[in-house]
Structures are given as structure tokens and as C-alpha cells.
Amino acid sequence: GKMTGIVKWFNADKGFGFITPDDGSKDVFVHFSAIQNDGYKSLDEGQKVSFTIESGAKGPAAGNVTSL
């Protein structure tokens, strides 16, 4: 299901970062391709987001990332 969290950091040049889930679980990798907006796909440190957990090739990653 949907989770919420805070963006820990995001490197716009490399197109990835990490989200710290509100439930205290392990930080989740986020790739820019998972960001659900029409414009420039980037996130800001400290931004609140909702997301799902998808299993990627390198382990769990955030999917369906939407800013709240």
C-alpha cells in the first residue's frame, strides 16, 4: 500500500536519492523515473512524499512517488 515519508536527499544530476519512511523502516532508494509529475522529475530534501515499495533489481525501491 501507500506509505509516506520525507526525502532524505536527492541528487538531481544523477537522478536518484533516498526517502526516509514515516514508519521508521529502512531508507528507500528512489529513482527519478518513479516520480509522478509532468514536469521536471526531481525531489527536494525534506519534502514530504507518498510512495509504494516496488522490488527492483537492486532491492526495494520507491514507486508512484507523489509530493504531498
Rank of each mutant, 00 (worst) to 15 (best):
G46A: 04
G63D: 10
G24D: 06
V49T: 02
K2Q: 10
D13M: 10
V28W: 03
V65C: 03
T4Q: 07
S55C: 05
K2R: 10
F32L: 07
A12R: 12
D23R: 06
Q36H: 10
G17M: 01
D38Q: 12
K2M: 12
I53G: 03
A61W: 08
G1I: 14
I6C: 05
Q47E: 14
D44Q: 11
G46V: 02
I19S: 00
S33Y: 06
E45D: 08
G59W: 09
A61R: 11
K26I: 13
I19C: 01
G24Y: 07
F16W: 13
N64E: 07
F16V: 07
T52F: 09
G46I: 02
G46R: 06
V30W: 02
K2F: 11
K48S: 09
S67N: 12
F16C: 04
L43Q: 02
S55H: 15
G46F: 06
P60R: 14
F10Y: 12
F16A: 02
G59K: 08
G15M: 04
G56C: 04
E54G: 07
H31I: 04
Y40V: 11
G5H: 00
G17W: 01
T20C: 05
D23Q: 07
G39Y: 11
F29P: 03
F10K: 02
T66I: 14
T4N: 08
K41W: 08
S25N: 09
D44M: 14
A61K: 14
G17L: 01
G59S: 09
I6D: 03
S33V: 05
Q47C: 04
W9G: 02
A57C: 05
S42M: 15
N64F: 09
E45Y: 12
A61Q: 13
G39F: 11
D13P: 08
P21M: 06
D27Q: 08
I53D: 02
P21V: 06
G46T: 03
Y40Q: 12
N37M: 09
M3Y: 10
N11S: 15
H31A: 05
T66M: 12
T20P: 01
T52L: 12
H31W: 04
N11T: 05
G39C: 04
D23P: 03
Y40M: 12
G1P: 13
T4P: 03
K41P: 08
T52C: 05
K48T: 07
D13R: 15
A61Y: 14
F32K: 08
L43H: 02
Y40D: 15
Y40K: 09
G1M: 15
I19L: 15
G63S: 15
T20Q: 12
E54K: 12
K2D: 08
I6L: 09
Q47K: 08
I19N: 00
I6T: 13
M3W: 13
I35L: 07
D13G: 11
F18Y: 07
K48G: 06
V65K: 01
A12G: 12
V28M: 05
D13W: 15
G39Q: 12
F16N: 02
A12M: 13
G5L: 00
G39L: 09
G5P: 00
K58I: 14
G46D: 04
D22V: 07
N11C: 04
D22R: 04
D22C: 05
I19W: 00
V65F: 01
K48A: 11
G63A: 13
S33W: 07
N64W: 08
V30L: 06
A61M: 12
N11F: 06
D23L: 06
P60L: 10
T4D: 05
I35P: 02
G5F: 01
V28C: 04
E45M: 14
D44R: 15
A57M: 13
V65T: 02
F18W: 10
G56Y: 10
L43A: 02
D23S: 11
N64G: 09
M3Q: 10
G1F: 10
K14P: 02
Q47P: 01
G59A: 06
K58Y: 13
E45F: 15
P21F: 05
T20E: 08
F51W: 02
D23M: 09
T66F: 07
N11M: 07
Q47A: 13
F16Y: 11
D44T: 15
G46Q: 06
D38I: 09
V49K: 00
I6G: 03
N37K: 10
A57D: 14
F51C: 02
K41S: 08
T52D: 11
D23T: 11
G56E: 09
G56F: 13
E45C: 05
N11L: 09
D27Y: 04
S67L: 14
F32N: 06
Q36L: 13
T52G: 04
G56I: 04
P60V: 15
V49W: 01
T66W: 10
P21G: 03
D44A: 14
K26C: 04
G1W: 07
K58D: 11
F10H: 01
V7M: 03
G59H: 08
K2G: 08
V65A: 02
K2C: 05
A12K: 15
F10D: 00
A62K: 01
N64K: 11
P21K: 03
F16G: 02
D13Q: 15
I35M: 06
T4W: 08
N64T: 09
H31N: 04
F29A: 03
A12E: 14
S67V: 13
F51S: 00
A12H: 12
D38H: 12
G5D: 00
P60F: 11
K8I: 07
F10P: 00
I53V: 11
L68S: 07
G15Q: 04
F29D: 01
F29L: 04
W9R: 04
W9S: 04
I35Y: 05
T52P: 01
K26A: 15
W9A: 03
V65N: 01
D22L: 09
S33C: 04
A62P: 01
D44N: 09
V28I: 12
L68R: 04
G17I: 01
K26Y: 09
F51K: 00
P21E: 02
S42K: 08
D27W: 04
F29T: 02
D13E: 15
I35R: 01
F32G: 05
P60T: 08
G56T: 14
S25G: 10
I6M: 09
V28T: 03
T52M: 06
E45P: 12
D27V: 06
P21W: 04
L68I: 11
G24T: 04
W9M: 04
S42Q: 14
N64I: 07
L68C: 05
Q47N: 07
A62H: 01
V30A: 03
E54A: 09
E54V: 15
F51A: 01
T4A: 07
S33E: 05
D27M: 08
K8C: 04
K2P: 14
P21N: 05
H31V: 03
S50C: 05
S50R: 06
V30G: 00
M3R: 11
T4V: 14
F32D: 03
A62G: 04
D38N: 11
N37T: 13
A62D: 01
M3V: 13
T4R: 07
F29N: 02
D13C: 05
P21C: 04
G59T: 05
V28F: 05
V28L: 11
G39D: 11
V49D: 00
T66L: 15
G15I: 02
S67D: 11
G17A: 01
K14A: 15
V49G: 00
N64R: 06
